[in-house]
Amino acid sequence: MMETILEIRQLKKTYPDGTEALKNINLSIKRGEFIVIIGPSGAGKSTFLRSINRLSEPTSGEIIFHGEDIVKANRAKLRKMRRNIGMIFQGFNLVKRLPTVRNVLHGKLGYMSTWKGALGLFNQEEVEEALSILERVGLEDQAFKRADELSGGQQQRVAIARAINQSPSIILADEPIASLDPNSSRVVMDYLQKACQEEGFTTIVNLHQVDFAKEYADRIVGIKNGEIYFDGPVKELSDDVIQSIYAKGKEAMPV
């Protein structure tokens, strides 16, 4: 519980148009933590999460993951490190025309030889593992349906299954429930939490719903204007702090 798994130092991201999305982020994350990042939209939450696995290239800084700097990794090294980082997106990002189980199998691509993976030659063991993970997210009956036939909540659970199948040590979830209704949101968050507890994944989730954040997080990080504004356990997150995180931002207070 005490071992530091991810250490972010002086992370900066400036877009070509000069926007400073991340100004100076320092964050140390311990194994098994369930961290929720909150903040107004445009504060840099998404950029921050996407910088961790370099879907968005940081301008400067260090991201030490398992003792190695992701920012300095070359392409091959980056691929190897990325398979240790599961990612869940707001838009699910499944290959809609492929069966659900194949989408879960995609989590294994990083471990396969290029051509085996490219041609989709998964062996019995891999398929069985994918099927059992689908079962764990309650979708065993949907395993062979086309991904786009599933509801939004179910698709997000497939995406969780895909991330689990990577056997990562950390999971990044970028607004995983922003396009779901409240009921499916809860189901998705429950599965995410459960998977992380069972597997001991460290989890970083971006949320804009503060109530969900309080309910699921061990630790909350508030980001405002590209900087960390609050960092602490849920009980320290007072209403005043929430107010000031969201203050000045044009958008209404989230409920």
Partner: peptide, 19 residues
């Protein structure tokens, strides 16, 4: 959640037919 609890890890009974 119940379904998933049952399905957790000890899947040997359902495995072959699914595969």
């Amino acid at each position: 959640l119940n379904i998933s609890n049952q399905g957790e890890k000890g899947l040997s009974a359902t495995k072959p037919s699914k595969y």
